[in-house]
């Protein structure tokens, strides 16, 4: 299991979920992806992305100016 960090700061929709998709495509099941984004819409989008792609959202933090989501690839 490895932790993959993805930087999606300053990217607007659909940038962050595209980066997440690319990282997830390269990852193996069980890997953890940590993504950081500044798009406020990403907070809801990452939940929808995880639900749709059946990956597990481990953590979602809103720091006001940026959002950090931690996802386990299933």
């Amino acid at each position: 299991m490895s932790v993959i960090k993805v930087g999606a700061r300053c990217l607007q929709c659909p940038g962050p979920i595209v980066e997440l998709h690319k990282a997830s495509a390269k990852a193996s099941p069980g890997d953890v992806i940590e993504i950081e984004a500044t798009d406020p819409g990403f907070k809801k989008d990452v939940v929808a992305w995880c639900k749709k792609t059946k990956n597990e959202l481990l953590k979602l933090d809103d720091f006001g100016d940026h959002i950090v989501a931690v996802i386990r690839k299933c």
Partner: peptide, 11 residues
């Protein structure tokens, strides 16, 4: 194209 790329990113 935003919808198209978004949908592709959703798999």
């Amino acid at each position: 194209f935003t919808i198209a790329t978004g949908a592709a990113a959703m798999g």
